Simulated scan of single mutants.
Amino acid sequence: MPQILSETDLGKALGTLPRWRLVEGALVREAELPSFAEAIQVVNRVAEIAESADHHPDIDIRWRTLTFRLMTHSEDGITELEHHAGHRDRRRARRPGLISGVSPGRGRGRRRPPRRRP
C-alpha cells in the first residue's frame, strides 16, 4: 500500500515538480493547447501512460485547456505514486507531440475573434 506523503515530503516533492500545485488534497496541473484536437491527443496519450502505470489522473477538458488532478483515491491523499506520475509528465513533456512548450494558462494558438451579433 502506498503511504501518504508527510507535509515535509510533500513540500519537497512539489519543489521538484514545476507547473504542479497543491489544490484540495491533490496535485494539479493545467495545460492549454493550441487546439481542441491537440488537447484530445494529449488526453489520449496520458490515458495510455496511465494504463501502463495503473495510476489514473482525473482529467477535466475545457475546450483546449486540460486540468490534471493526481491523488491516490484508495489512500485519500497524495502518495509517492503522484510524485512519480508528475515526473513521468515532465519527462514526456519534453518529447515532441506531448504538451511540449505549452505553459499553464497560455496557449500558442490564436484565439478566434468574438462573434458579432446582428
Rank of each mutant, 00 (worst) to 15 (best):
D76S: 05
D76E: 06
D76Q: 03
D76I: 02
G77W: 01
G77N: 11
G77A: 08
I78R: 01
I78F: 03
I78E: 02
T79G: 02
T79W: 06
E80Y: 09
E80T: 13
L81D: 15
E82A: 02
E82K: 01
E82S: 06
H83S: 03
H83F: 05
G86F: 02
H87K: 11
R88T: 12
R88P: 00
D89I: 06
D89P: 01
R91V: 05
A93D: 12
A93V: 08
A93T: 14
R94T: 11
R94H: 12
R95C: 08
P96D: 10
G97M: 03
G97I: 04
L98D: 04
L98W: 15
L98E: 05
I99F: 11
I99T: 11
S100N: 15
S100P: 06
G101M: 05
G101D: 10
V102E: 15
V102S: 12
S103Q: 14
S103M: 13
S103T: 15
P104E: 09
P104Q: 09
G105L: 03
G105F: 04
R106K: 13
R106Q: 13
R106M: 05
R106F: 10
R108Y: 08
R108L: 12
R108C: 01
R108D: 09
R108G: 11
G109E: 08
G109I: 07
G109T: 07
R110L: 14
R110M: 12
R111I: 10
R111C: 08
R111E: 15
